[in-house]
Design a protein around this nucleic acid. Sequence first.
DNA 1: CTTCTGTTCTATAGATTTATAGAATATGAT
DNA 2: ATCATATTCTATAAATCTATAGAACAGAAG
Lengths: 242, 242
Amino acid sequence: MTASATGRLVKDGLYEQFARVGKAVAHPKRIELLDLLCQGERSVEVLADAAAMTVVNTSAHLRVLRESRLVATRREGTRVFYRLADDAVCEFFFSLRDLAGDRYAEVDRIVRDFFEARDELEPVNRDELLSRAGDGGVIVLDVRPREEYEAGHIQGAISIPLADLKGRMASLPREAEIVAYCRGPYCVLAPQALELLRRRGFTARRLEDGFPEWRRAGLPIVIGEDPSSDRHPDPTTEVTGS
Amino acid sequence: MTASATGRLVKDGLYEQFARVGKAVAHPKRIELLDLLCQGERSVEVLADAAAMTVVNTSAHLRVLRESRLVATRREGTRVFYRLADDAVCEFFFSLRDLAGDRYAEVDRIVRDFFEARDELEPVNRDELLSRAGDGGVIVLDVRPREEYEAGHIQGAISIPLADLKGRMASLPREAEIVAYCRGPYCVLAPQALELLRRRGFTARRLEDGFPEWRRAGLPIVIGEDPSSDRHPDPTTEVTGS
DNA sequence: CTTCTGTTCTATAGATTTATAGAATATGAT
DNA sequence: ATCATATTCTATAAATCTATAGAACAGAAG
């Protein structure tokens, strides 16, 4: 075999491997699943619900992701939990998401139409939130589903899932500034929370990105349940931002 | 419309956009084209030849890349030149390539079978090459095609395309150490050059990655032709590594 | 103008991917 | 053991993607 024929075989083999990653992210629902898995481990059922797909369809997409080795599984009783196979997968998702944000005016338009209409004030960046987190006047609000909060949240944040926010707003102090965060810069949860809070007269802003970016930056996180959780009422706990 | 229905519309729209990038890199030949374009601008014809495809097929793949806005075009006479739409696309390619390298043992196996068999000595990293580049005992050899060299090369490198190497080895000093580089860590050109050089008794190593990584690291590069080029013989120029 | 070259467009057949339905499997509870 | 639940497997039709061939188009040269 000639040297150039060998070279072509090697190239074809390598690019074939690279394309396995590409094929894995060639469907919007699989990207959505990766985004969700960047938050933490999830069962098929929960993923199906979050991504608005049937369980069977979700399972098929997860299978593609698993065969491309971007995700791994763990069985616990009758449930199968999926997780990212490596932190590098989350990094790759960020890279893809940010490239799309850079290149496509459509992303910018969607962001403007949806997000900016709900941002009364400029979003808060990570450094600003970190420097103000301890001063007591800021309440950091995690509006993701409870299970995502428990899988990991910003240190000092309290958990009020968006679905519960309407009923629990009364427990928030009116004089404090609220900073809400969710899954990332394109997640709809925090903007929707801002809309509710603003209507009731709260001063609310959102963190410009979400929990995965905070964790990636090496900033303080806590794993476990919210001390103010009303699932296990306990008179010694109180709502606090620090 | 309910808030959650709006949220689903926004999510679907955003993930659809993200998937445009994914679909663009879902075919090995398109990834190969992106890799080539990371070296610099190229015409359809040259790309077709380099990727071992027909011009028509290459044009179709380039169209997909252009429609996903990862590449841009420029017409010059009868030729159309393609280039990356942004440096961020090169970064994204690196991210995808490195993830595949991390996750797939297959990549490692191909690298071992092909590359390590040709590496008599350990590859040189960028810092090591930079610190030794000026000491005269090292010849930095760019074995990519001439046009890629002229589009940008490592400062001090001389251009001997792999195809010309056999005939031009005699002009290389036997006592110097040669460091060959090409398009990147998975490019076959430098390993094939090492094999030729080693057989003739030269001490040759390769740079562990290629020109795009060197440029990305902000290290010194030069654009233009090789002063030792034999296309325009000139008695005042000489082969030198500095 | 015509001709030539490089590139893109159009049509098409074959291959691959996707969503869905129904069956099968695995685990835990009874 | 049987039943219930969660997930995966199998089959299939629809949709999408790919490679190829031939036509069409744009610019350069005569």
